[in-house]
Design a binder for these strands. Structure first.
Lengths: 211, 211
DNA sequence: TAGCTATCCGACTTGTTGGTCGGTTTTAAC
DNA sequence: GTTAAAACCGACCAACAAGTCGGATAGCTA
């Protein structure tokens, strides 16, 4: 098993530096040699572990991106507290890493979608799958919120989900150069404003108390 | 002047096909030869008119992108009708061209920002300038709305502007592959919902009647 | 110690890129 | 028709890309 461990360690090292460079410079604008140079590894090592540059990217998406999106955007809103609070905090945290110029996976998703859309259907399949899961999670969180009496029963859960995803993806693009911190603050304020407009108007007890 | 006309015609032809290809495949992923092939022109013609590929792009942005963004996203909201109606209609129209898979300049902006961010400061300067103008226009439209009594006086105009830009940029990314028409519809519904939450609550006459 | 295999090396091939340059054609003025 | 500038041609170059391949090395097993 020692051999397997070494293999995994090397591949993981390759993937993290690869992802960082893809994030910084884009996939098509990053050469395999660029990655190898940063790792002090050779072409041989790369093509020993991966079939091609694209295979490398697919494994990065499956191993790193999917998992990170899960931990940053999916799991935080799966709790049973007030849905709107959960989403607010989740976005707050995700955008905070962005303010500090760290690699943030929500934006990475946006980057990749723009780069591969209409050019590489294979990769797009993976990216769309991630988006789909995010959307589904949001929809059920909102429905849970309606059920628990935190969200008005008349709101369209799918609509809210699409609107939330849109605004999140968009604010990340707007935060890349100009006043990220100020823009984040303004964005979060308006998000709360929007949430106020869809939260339950009545002071009724939540639905689940009737059980 | 006949010579100048021919020059302009050729350059314009180059720019429109260039922009289309950049939109479809990205800037770095489109070679000068790709463009020339589509135009049935030669390298010589290209470098006779432009200093470099980057110079070519800058001229495209200045000649085509800026003007189109103006006519699609800026001018439509500069009228004196109800601001929220103007913005709603403007987004509605802009997203409709997107549904039909036409080259839409709001999305192009998003594409370019993602492609050049952190890689080409010269180009980013131009793109940020366009965003700035869009933001300023939105802010003053909202302030006009407050003044005219269509929008609640307590809302933060800058915040609303950032939120609107975010959501617009984001929905365009989400519309690229999955159910663009349905997503547009849901997005617009929620936008209206959000607008309801910031519109003037009272039935007071607008401010300007006191003059 | 010998041998086997997983890992890694780096020169190489093949193709593409942005850009150059000497030359040819087109155009308009005289 | 002559001429000169404007517009265009396309072979060419150096740099760089992804991917190949014969060989080196290191660590484990017998």
């Amino acid at each position: 098993m020692e051999k397997t461990l070494k293999r995994m360690a090397t591949m993981h090292r390759m993937q993290t530096t690869g992802l960082n460079l893809f994030y910084k410079n884009g996939y098509y604008n990053t050469s395999v040699d660029d990655i190898l140079k940063e790792l002090s590894l050779s072409k041989g090592a790369f093509y020993y572990h991966y079939d091609s540059k694209e295979d490398f990217l697919v494994q990065i998406i499956e191993q790193l991106v999917v998992r990170k999106v899960y931990s940053m955007l999916i799991e935080p809103i799966e709790g049973h507290e007030n849905t709107l609070d959960l989403i607010t905090n989740c976005f707050e945290d995700a955008l905070e890493t962005a303010v500090h110029n760290e690699l943030d996976y929500g934006f990475l998703l946006n980057n990749f979608i723009n780069e591969f859309n209409g050019r590489n259907p294979e990769i797009m399949k993976h990216l769309n799958e991630i988006l789909r899961i995010w959307e589904v999670t949001l929809v059920s969180a909102i429905q849970r919120g309606k059920f628990n009496g935190h969200i008005d029963r008349h709101v369209d859960a799918e609509g809210v989900a699409v609107y939330l995803m849109s605004s999140f993806i968009g604010i990340r693009t707007l935060m890349v150069e100009t006043a990220p911190s100020a823009r984040k603050y303004r964005f979060m304020s308006q998000l709360r404003q929007y949430f106020k407009s869809i939260e339950s108007k009545s002071e009724n007890q939540p639905n689940n108390t009737i059980y």
